[in-house]
């Protein structure tokens, strides 16, 4: 029976991935969760589990979390085989327990990609994304003080698309969901965001080449257009950003004379 207003709590069998360190072997640990409030978020349910574990003198499950309002990109759990769970455009912290059926067995795993090595349990090292960003995901030109409004006209289409790409919170669900562990949606979002705006133009080509080089050297897989990334993205970023990344990279490396 699915949870509804009459069922305030549900019971779950939780299979949580436990791994002491990146090199150590991991395995699932089973926990029977009784009376889970349907109003709690998935992370709050994990907090309850951890409180129980601590009271019993056991090690709590390590997982990343921060803002818990879906904008920081810290939470990273593969729930029943789907990054951030089955709800579309929802980060784990915004996933509520009312979306689960009482009696259900729920598997919780970390992001799995060699570029995101496990630190412990469900926490993975996503510094590969930071290194890709350091390679060029910014504007280094001094843009001066805030200009007058409308001094630089930007089309509605460009500003909308830049804003859509900028919605990326860098959580890594795209890599986790991609059958090839490709980071193209993330890098595409970061490149498209600046490629659409005037401030991004002077460094546009240098940026795309440097970021793709950094992405490749981090060992992410190659995109084969399954589009699972976009379906898993909690911000609903479309694969048009990948096309933009491809286009800009081809242009910068093959077409330009420098």
């Amino acid at each position: 029976m699915s949870a509804n207003e009459h069922d305030e709590t549900i019971d779950l069998t939780l299979k949580v991935w436990r791994q002491r360190s990146g090199g150590a072997p991991g395995q699932f640990e089973t926990h029977e969760m009784k009376g889970v409030s349907v109003h709690s978020s998935f992370l709050e349910m994990m907090d309850v589990l951890n409180a129980t574990l601590v009271r019993a003198g056991k090690e709590p499950v390590v997982f990343d979390h921060d803002c818990r309002e879906g904008i920081c990109g810290s939470c990273s759990m593969v729930i029943n085989g789907q990054a951030h769970g089955a709800e579309p455009e929802t980060a784990t912290c915004q996933l509520h327990m009312r979306k689960f059926r009482s009696g259900e067995t729920v598997f919780v795993e970390p992001w799995r990609a060699d570029s995101f090595p496990v630190i412990r349990d469900l926490m993975v090292d996503r510094s590969a994304f930071d290194r890709v960003m350091s390679a060029g995901g910014y504007v280094s030109a001094n843009t001066g003080s805030p200009p007058d409004a409308n001094a630089t006209p930007i089309s509605r289409e460009d500003s909308d698309q830049a804003m859509d790409a900028a919605a990326c919170i860098g959580c890594g669900a795209c890599v986790a969901a991609c059958p090839n562990s490709s980071a193209m949606l993330f890098v595409g979002a970061k490149v498209s965001h600046l490629a659409r705006l005037p401030q991004g133009q002077p460094e546009r080509e240098r940026r795309v080449v440097a970021m793709v080089q950094a992405m490749d050297s981090e060992g992410f897989g190659n995109c084969t257009n399954h589009y699972e990334c976009s379906k898993a993205c909690p911000k609903g970023i479309g694969v048009d950003v990948i096309a933009q990344l491809n286009r800009d990279y081809i242009k910068a490396t093959v077409v330009r004379s420098n």
Binding site: G81, R112, S181, G219, G221, S230
Partner: peptide, 21 residues
């Protein structure tokens, strides 16, 4: 070959979301 190398540890449960065909 590179894509296989990019993920050595496989998911125990894997559910596609409708992108893959």
């Amino acid at each position: 070959v590179e894509n296989r190398k990019a993920r050595h540890s496989k998911y125990a449960v894997q559910a596609d979301r409708g992108g893959k065909t």
